[in-house]
């Protein structure tokens, strides 16, 4: 541990939540996964629901999410996290259930499960990390890769006639009657992280109401896959991804 100033007479105003394990995360430097993991675990800690929460990890970079999240967890097959979460929630309807998936998992191989889970209005929280690339397998095109984006499988840039268009799956699920709360957030600034935390808090507060699916997209980065420094990656994300995936609420519960 490093301390440049004495902490005598000071009080802790920010520390690692106990719901996050001590295991150092395997993510690349600057990756947004770590922030989302931490914020999610903070909310679970502060709401005191660790003993009533079950999470589902995906396949992708966050496949080892269960190594860091100190809650009961199941590891799903690629794309099936929301189906697994459905199975858990249906037999444990009073527990808090969330799935955590990346863009390849949720919006390519798992599109069917995603649409139908939300369409049934499963009372779960789906967290969707969109960084426009397949990180774990080495930077291939994702369904959410933007037009012109160079990836290891679109070496000349994504072309719509060849590769189709970026899939705005969050806009798609917003249209479904089973969606209760849909929002798109990011984690690139302290203010953005605060907003994400509020969105996660709201989603867990909604869950016992059994009104439908809460869906949070986090527009995030992939410094390694994009071949940029973390600072450059966040700037690229703001410039190129935010116009296509604008930050903000897409569907908020109607006031009673």
């Amino acid at each position: 541990m490093e301390s440049a100033a004495t902490t005598n007479h000071m009080e802790i105003v920010y520390e690692r939540p106990v719901t996050l394990t001590d295991t150092p995360m395997h993510y690349c430097p600057g990756c947004g996964h770590g922030v989302v993991h931490r914020v999610l675990m903070e909310v679970i800690n502060e709401m005191g629901i660790q003993d009533r929460t079950v999470g589902v990890a995906p396949v992708g970079c966050s496949v080892f999410a269960y190594n860091y999240m100190n809650v009961d967890m199941q590891e799903a097959a690629h794309g099936r996290a929301s189906a697994v979460a459905t199975g858990i929630k249906r037999v444990l309807p009073e527990k808090y259930v969330y799935s955590y998936q990346g863009d390849g998992d949720l919006a390519a191989i798992g599109t069917g499960e995603t649409i139908h889970t939300v369409n049934r209005g499963e009372n779960i929280l789906m967290i969707f990390i969109n960084n426009a690339i397949y990180g774990m397998t080495g930077g291939q095109m994702a369904p959410t890769s933007i037009l012109g984006q160079v990836t290891s499988t679109t070496p000349y840039g994504r072309k719509s006639d060849l590769n189709g268009f970026p899939l705005k799956i969050t806009d798609l699920v917003t249209q479904l009657p089973g969606a209760y709360y849909v929002t798109r957030q990011s984690v690139h600034t302290a203010a953005a992280v605060r907003k994400l935390k509020k969105a996660i808090e709201a989603s867990f507060k909604y869950q016992p109401l059994k009104k439908g699916t809460c869906f949070i997209e986090v527009v995030s980065n992939c410094p390694s896959g994009w071949k940029m420094t973390p600072i450059e990656a966040n700037a690229w994300m703001e410039k190129n991804m935010f116009p296509l995936y604008p930050i903000g609420d897409l569907k908020v519960p109607k006031q009673n």
Binding site: V56, A83, V84, T86, G87, V91, E113, I115
Partner: peptide, 22 residues
């Protein structure tokens, strides 16, 4: 609980989730 899934893929993964939940 009985649920008609959207596919056999989804169904077996719901079984995974529910079975895993005991």
């Amino acid at each position: 609980v009985v649920l008609q899934a959207e596919s056999e893929l989804a169904a077996i993964n719901m079984v995974y989730g529910a079975g895993g939940a005991g």
